[in-house]
Structure formats: structure tokens, C-alpha cells
């Protein structure tokens, strides 16, 4: 173990292969949660978030499993995911998730691996892109409510030199709390905002689908890059 991660603390690198596995896990999570996401959206929106996201993430899964998937750098991988989502997902979710991954991609150079600090910076860029695109702030009851606390927790943990596993765990917990908090506040953005105070008591579907990003990151990225549990897809 540790042949490539000589640095101490959270200096361990995240490879493009790990990023690919993380996004695959995310795709699986969305696909299996389609009905739940749609049910949340039926309560306060227009009942299409699950279907919409499932359709997009199925395309992402196909793309990530395709041997021609651009897996030589984190940036090109993220850009490919972004374009797939922009093409396949309508509604607000397509532009928002598309922007998240597109902006995240621009912060990565063409290296095949990134440091945890670069990973946090990448997610920070994605967050800022989403806030700009959706003109949303914290507590508007949107996906920002799970992403922003998670990015802040990740940045703080990495700043305190916690190891990657712990940092990702704290980020996922912050995302989960942020997601749950959306049930306590009224919507100020999106279709749910027309409900005003009647949206209180319902968890936001977008905050929920965004939480899965951090939940799956904690599950997948904490595993060291060189420990391949599954056979390589390039046979």
C-alpha cells in the first residue's frame, strides 16, 4: 500500500479512475432513488426530478462505462459528464448539474490525478457555478443547501490536515444535514417557491439528489486509488 501516496495526512491523490468510479456510484444511486426523488418532487414541484435525473444519469453511466470515455484527465472526464447531462436532462436540473460539472472541470488541469485540496477547489467551483446559474443562495431550499455546507466542511477538514476518508465523511454529513434542513424552510427558488410557506415540511428534491454526490464520494473516494476491487474495464 501507499506506493504512490508518499505525502502525509490528506496529501493522498485522487485518480481519474477513482473519480470515474465515484460518478458511476452516483449514477447508480440516482437510478435506484428515482421513485423517491420523484415522490419528493410531487409534493412541492412538478414530479419530474426523479425521471429527469435517472434519464441523465443512465446516459452518464453509459458514457463512463464506454471504453472511449475520456479518462486521461479529471477535467476531460468531468466535461464529458457535464455535456452528457446538458444533452439528456431538461428542466432546471440539466443546466444546474451541467454547470456544476462544467465549472468543476475548468478548475482541474489535465493531470490524471488531483490532490484532496484540488478536489475541494473543484467542488467549490461547481458550487459557485450552480449559485450563479440558479441565482440561488443558502436557505433558498435548493441543491445549494446540501452542496455549500459540504464544500465548506471539506475545505475545513482539509485545512486541518484531516485524512481524506475523514474529510469526505464530514462533507457527506454536512450535506445530509443541509438536505434535511431544507424540510424546515420555505422555498424561495424554483417551482416550489410558488407554494411559499406551504413548502415547509417537505425536503427539497434537488438538495437530495445533490446530497448523493457527497454520500457516494465518501463511500468511493476514501478507498485508495491503487486498490482495485473490480477488474479493469479495459480487458
Amino acid at each position: 500500500m501507499g506506493q504512490q501516496n508518499g505525502q502525509a495526512g490528506n496529501g493522498q491523490a485522487i485518480s481519474v479512475e477513482q473519480i470515474r468510479r465515484w460518478l458511476l456510484a452516483y449514477a447508480h444511486r440516482i437510478i435506484e432513488q428515482e421513485e423517491y426523488l420523484t415522490a419528493l418532487d410531487a409534493d412541492i414541484g412538478d414530479a419530474d426530478h426523479g425521471t429527469n435525473m435517472r434519464r441523465g444519469l443512465e446516459k452518464v453511466k453509459e458514457r463512463l462505462e464506454d471504453p472511449d470515455c475520456p479518462c486521461n484527465s479529471v477535467g476531460s472526464l468531468l466535461r464529458s459528464v457535464a455535456m452528457t447531462l446538458i444533452s439528456a436532462v431538461g428542466g432546471a436540473a440539466g443546466p444546474l448539474y451541467g454547470t456544476f460539472f462544467l465549472r468543476a472541470a475548468t478548475s482541474c488541469n489535465n493531470s490524471p490525478a488531483i490532490t484532496p485540496a484540488q478536489f475541494a477547489a473543484m467542488l467549490r467551483q461547481g458550487l459557485e457555478g450552480v449559485k450563479q446559474r440558479g441565482k440561488a443562495h443558502l436557505d433558498d431550499k435548493t441543491m445549494v443547501d446540501s452542496i455549500q455546507p459540504a464544500v465548506e466542511a471539506l475545505e475545513a477538514a482539509i485545512g486541518q490536515h484531516k485524512d481524506l476518508r475523514q474529510a469526505l465523511h464530514e462533507a457527506a454529513e454536512a450535506a445530509r444535514r443541509g438536505m434535511e434542513h431544507t424540510a424546515e424552510i420555505p422555498a424561495r427558488k424554483g417551482r416550489a417557491s410558488y407554494l411559499g410557506p406551504r413548502s415547509i415540511g417537505h425536503q427539497d428534491p434537488g438538495a437530495t439528489s445533490a446530497y448523493y454526490l457527497f454520500e457516494t464520494a465518501a463511500q468511493v473516494l476514501a478507498t485508495p486509488a491503487h486498490r482495485r476491487e473490480s477488474p479493469s474495464r479495459h480487458r
Binding site: 412538478d46 414530479a47 419530474d48 425521471t51 429527469n52 446538458i86 444533452s87 439528456a88 436532462v89 431538461g90 428542466g91 432546471a92 440539466g94 443546466p95 451541467g98
Partner: peptide, 11 residues
């Protein structure tokens, strides 16, 4: 046209 009640994709 997007899907039912869903705006189209930017593409």
C-alpha cells in the same frame, strides 16, 4: 418541446 412539464435541454 421538452418532456411533459420539463423544459427542453439547452442542446
Amino acid at each position: 418541446p421538452g418532456r411533459v412539464f420539463t423544459s427542453p435541454s439547452p442542446v
